[in-house]
C-alpha cells in the first residue's frame, strides 16, 4: 500500500465578490515508502498549494479543500486540528524554499531544533540538545555544538538549509515534502543540498515529495514525475521515460527550453511562448492550448481527459508529441 495516496485533491480559493479560483484541480498521485516523487511546473501551477493542502496548512477561511489525502490509510483532511498538529513534524516533515525566512530570526538554531524534539519525542531539554548536535552533524554542519547557540543570520545560506532539513527530519518523519528547497541557493550549494537529501532519504527510508520547477533537480532525484499545469496533472511518468520521450507538449517545451551542453553550436533555446496568464479554464478545453505549438481546434473546445498510455504513464492531451523513433545507426 502506498504511504501517501492523494486522490482528486482540489483546492478552490474563494473570496467574497470574486470568481472562485481553482488552484489545484483533481490532482491524484501516490508515494511509496522510500520513493521520491516530483511535482513539476512553473510558478502558479499549484505545486505549493498541493503541498500545503497535504500538510493541512491552508487557511481555514477562503480555501476549500476536497478529495482525500490518505496517509497509511487515514484521510489527513478529515483529522481534527489537534490530531493534524500531532502528525505535523512527527509523521510529515516539510522543508521550505527560503531558508533564511523559514527560520525564526530571534531564536538560536539549537532551540529551533530541540523545540520539535521536545514537542514530538518528549525529550528533556538536555537530551534534546545532544540529539540536536547529532542531527546537525548528520546534515553536514561542521562544529555542531557551537552552531547550536548561533542565530540564523550567522549561518550561510547552505548551512541554513541544512539546519532546516535537520529540523524537518528531527523526528524521522516517514514523508518529507520539500518545496523548492534549492531555489534560494547558489548552484554549487544546490548540488550539495540535493545530494544530502538523496542520502538522508535513502538512509532513513523516508518518502520524498519534491516540488520544483527545475527539471535538473527532477533528473537527479525523482523516481516518478508529475507535471502540473494550471492545477492539473498533465503528464505523469517514470523519470527516465519522461526525459527520453516527453509526450505532453508542455513537458516537451520545458525540456527543450533547458540549455544543453551537447546541443549543436548556434542552436537557439526554444522557450514556451506566452505565460501562465494566457491560460484558459480547464472546463472549456485544454488550459495549455493558447501556448501550445500542437494545438488543434478540438483543444479549445473539449477538455482533454487523463489517459493511461501504458507503462504507468498518464497523459492529458489531444495531440501529444510523437515519441522519438529510436535512431538506428546507419552503416
Amino acid at each position: 500500500m502506498a504511504l501517501l495516496e492523494v486522490r482528486d485533491l482540489t483546492v478552490v480559493f474563494e473570496r467574497k465578490g470574486e470568481q472562485p479560483f481553482t488552484a489545484v484541480d483533481h490532482v491524484s498521485f501516490e508515494v511509496e515508502p522510500g520513493q521520491t516523487v516530483g511535482l513539476v511546473g512553473e510558478s502558479g501551477c499549484g505545486k505549493s498549494v498541493t503541498s500545503l493542502a497535504i500538510m493541512g496548512l491552508l487557511p481555514k477561511r477562503g480555501a476549500r479543500v476536497s478529495g482525500t489525502v490518505g496517509y497509511e490509510g487515514t484521510n489527513l483532511l478529515s483529522l481534527s486540528d489537534r490530531e493534524m498538529r500531532d502528525r505535523r513534524g512527527r509523521d510529515l516533515g516539510m522543508v521550505f524554499q527560503d531558508p533564511l525566512s523559514s527560520l525564526n530570526p530571534v531564536v538560536p538554531i539549537g532551540v529551533q531544533v530541540t523545540e520539535v524534539l521536545e514537542r514530538h519525542r518528549d525529550m528533556s531539554r538536555k537530551k534534546a540538545m545532544v540529539e540536536a548536535a547529532d542531527l546537525l552533524d548528520k546534515v553536514g554542519i561542521p562544529d555542531p555544538t557551537r552552531r547550536l547557540s548561533e542565530y540564523p543570520h550567522q549561518l550561510s545560506g547552505g548551512m541554513r538549509q541544512r539546519a532546516l532539513i535537520a529540523i524537518a527530519l528531527a523526528c524521522r518523519p516517514r514523508l518529507l515534502i520539500a518545496d523548492e528547497p534549492t531555489t534560494a541557493l547558489d548552484v554549487t550549494i544546490q548540488a550539495q543540498i540535493l545530494a544530502l537529501l538523496k542520502e538522508l532519504v535513502r538512509d532513513m527510508g523516508t518518502a520524498l515529495v519534491m516540488i520544483t520547477h527545475d527539471l535538473g533537480v527532477v533528473a537527479g532525484l525523482c523516481d516518478e514525475v508529475n507535471v502540473l499545469y494550471a492545477g492539473r496533472v498533465v503528464e505523469k511518468a517514470e523519470r527516465h521515460e519522461l526525459f527520453a520521450a516527453p509526450r505532453h507538449p508542455y513537458t516537451h517545451g520545458l525540456l527543450s527550453s533547458i540549455p544543453r551542453l551537447d546541443a549543436p553550436r548556434g542552436q537557439k533555446l526554444s522557450p514556451i511562448k506566452g505565460s501562465v496568464a494566457d491560460n484558459i479554464p480547464w472546463d472549456h478545453g485544454c488550459a495549455f492550448a493558447p501556448r501550445c505549438p500542437n494545438a488543434l481546434d478540438v483543444c479549445v473546445q473539449v477538455t482533454p481527459a487523463q489517459e493511461d498510455i501504458g507503462g504507468g504513464r498518464l497523459l492529458r492531451c489531444h495531440n501529444p508529441v510523437r515519441p522519438p523513433v529510436v535512431e538506428e545507426v546507419s552503416a
Binding site: M55, R88, G89, M94, F96, D98, S101, S102, E115, L164
Partner: peptide, 14 residues
C-alpha cells in the same frame, strides 16, 4: 503570515 511561522506550524508546534 511569515515563512518562519508557517514553518513552525508545519512542524506541529503548538
Amino acid at each position: 503570515h511569515s515563512d518562519h511561522v508557517l514553518a513552525a506550524t508545519a512542524l506541529g508546534v503548538k
